[in-house]
Amino acid sequence: MRLRIFTEPQQGASYETLLTVARAAEDLGFEAFFRSDHYLKMGSVSGLPGPTDAWVTLAGLARETSRIRLGTLMTAATFRAPGPLAISVAQVDQMSGGRVEFGFGAGWFEAEHTAYGLPFPVDAGERFDRFEEQLAIVTGLWQTPVGETFDYQGKYYRLTDSPALPKPAQSPRPPVIVGGTGRRRTPKLAAAYADEYNVPFTVLEGTRAAFDRVRAAVEEAGRERPMVYSAAQVVCVGRDEAEVARRAAAIGREVDELRVNGLAGSPDEVVDKIGRFAEIGTERIYLQVLDLSDLDHLELIADRVAAQLA
């Protein structure tokens, strides 16, 4: 099982805070540092100092880290046109020496769109139609051989004689991550385009069911290349119950609820639950760390959880 650190900067984090956490995650041996791609806080937190852009952040981290992989869960297709998005991600991949992974989703949070003047198709079917076209365009641009051009004629996007440049450092492209628990279109899109399928914040049986739907879609598509199956879970680990309770309170959650809906408790409890995720085929866990000031939490996870899973 590979452990990755996943952050939610829209809840309140500067670039310097994210750099500190990313460097700590790298030094402690975690496989990857990921962040959400949101422009508006959620819940009762202040959100100060305000949002940071995911790909601007990752470009900076690409130059200030050396080993750890970098990515998003998930970049919203509603935020950026597919051509410029392909350019940005390819450039960050070059800047990192080939360490980028591209988590990509249809977009869902209407309030952040209205807050910053971004068009938001209210109809979920249209959002998924646009998402599917963007997946085809972004991956198509990256995989077009140098010297050839890329054309695409869709309902929402049209590209003509694109030079399909720049190319990412990874060939044929950075890994693409598609996630969510949709029952129909998500499995088909994952089978068609993704290298990894991620189930966010879902209990064990729900995660198993989502994996099974994607496995069926992969088989139906006759796909030969392997799919990585992963899960994202909020994490709250403590050396004793008092420490678990303190960390839960710091993120506005209850310990009993986190034990059900996340990875919470002693290191041994969390290792045991991760083992149950491994039994259903989970290969990576994204640990959602909500208190970015608590670097001791990362050290405890590295020393007492990751060490047992190595």
Rank of each mutant, 00 (worst) to 15 (best):
V122G: 10
P175Q: 04
Q308S: 09
E196Q: 12
F30R: 02
E269M: 10
G47S: 04
V228R: 12
A90N: 03
D294I: 06
E133G: 03
P166V: 03
L258N: 07
P84Y: 02
R259G: 09
V178I: 15
A242S: 14
M1F: 09
V122T: 09
P175K: 01
F201N: 10
F33D: 01
G29V: 11
Y193W: 14
A90F: 11
A76L: 13
V289P: 01
L309V: 00
G281S: 10
K273Q: 14
V305G: 08
L61I: 12
Q153Y: 09
V260C: 03
V289H: 06
T160I: 13
M1Y: 10
A115V: 10
A190C: 12
D296C: 09
P168A: 08
V234C: 03
A190D: 06
A217I: 06
A250V: 12
A190V: 07
V56K: 02
D37P: 05
Q308D: 12
P82A: 10
S171D: 13
Y39T: 00
R184E: 10
F211G: 03
D151N: 14
A217Q: 02
G180T: 01
L58G: 02
H38F: 01
A302Y: 12
E132C: 04
Q134P: 13
Y39D: 00
H38P: 04
V235T: 10
T186N: 08
R284N: 14
A248K: 01
P121E: 06
F277Q: 04
D294Q: 11
